[in-house]
Amino acid sequence: MSQFTHINASGEANMVDVSTKQETVREARAEAWVSMSKETLDLIVSGSHHKGDVFATARIAGIQAAKKTWDLIPLCHPLLLSKVEVQLEALPETNQVRIESVCKLAGKTGVEMEALTAASVAALTIYDMCKAVQKDMVIGNVRLLEKTGGKSGHFVAN
Rank of each mutant, 00 (worst) to 15 (best):
T94R: 13
I60D: 00
V156H: 05
T125L: 06
K21C: 04
N95M: 05
Q3I: 10
S10L: 15
T109N: 12
D17F: 05
T125D: 00
T69R: 10
V111Q: 07
E100G: 00
V84W: 02
F155T: 10
S10Y: 03
N95Q: 11
D71W: 10
T109H: 10
S82E: 08
H154G: 02
E85A: 12
N141M: 03
T125E: 01
M1T: 13
L116C: 13
I63H: 03
K83S: 04
I73Y: 12
E85W: 03
A118L: 08
V156P: 00
E31H: 07
V18A: 05
I60R: 02
V18H: 08
H50Y: 12
M1L: 07
K38F: 07
D17A: 03
G107F: 05
V97W: 09
T24G: 05
V133N: 07
E93G: 02
P92N: 05
K104N: 09
M15Y: 03
T148G: 04
N8D: 14
A30T: 07
K68C: 03
G11S: 06
V86F: 06
H50I: 14
F55A: 05
L81S: 05
S19C: 00
I7C: 07
E112W: 06
K38P: 01
A61H: 06
V111L: 11
L145Q: 12
D17Y: 09
W70F: 09
V142Q: 13
D42R: 15
A32W: 04
A28P: 15
K135Y: 01
S48C: 09
R29N: 08
A66Q: 11
E23A: 15
V45G: 01
V156K: 11
K135F: 00
S19E: 04
V133P: 00
L43Y: 09
L72T: 14
H6M: 11
E93M: 04
W70Y: 11
T109G: 09
K67E: 12
Q22P: 13
R26W: 04
E89G: 01
L81A: 05
Q3R: 15
S82R: 04
V86I: 14
M113Q: 11
C130A: 08
A28Q: 10
T24S: 13
Q96T: 15
H154D: 05
L145V: 13
V16C: 10
A123V: 15
R59W: 03
A106P: 00
L81K: 06
A58P: 13
A106R: 15
E85F: 00
C103K: 02
K38S: 10
H77C: 11
D136S: 11
E89Q: 14
N141C: 10
K131M: 12
E31W: 03
S152K: 13
E39R: 06
A58Q: 08
A118N: 06
A65Q: 09
M113G: 07
L91S: 01
V138S: 07
P92I: 08
A13C: 13
K21A: 07
Y127E: 07
S152C: 06
P92G: 05
P74F: 06
V86Y: 02
N14M: 14
T69S: 09
V86M: 06
E112D: 12
Q64A: 09
G149A: 08
A30F: 07
E12R: 15
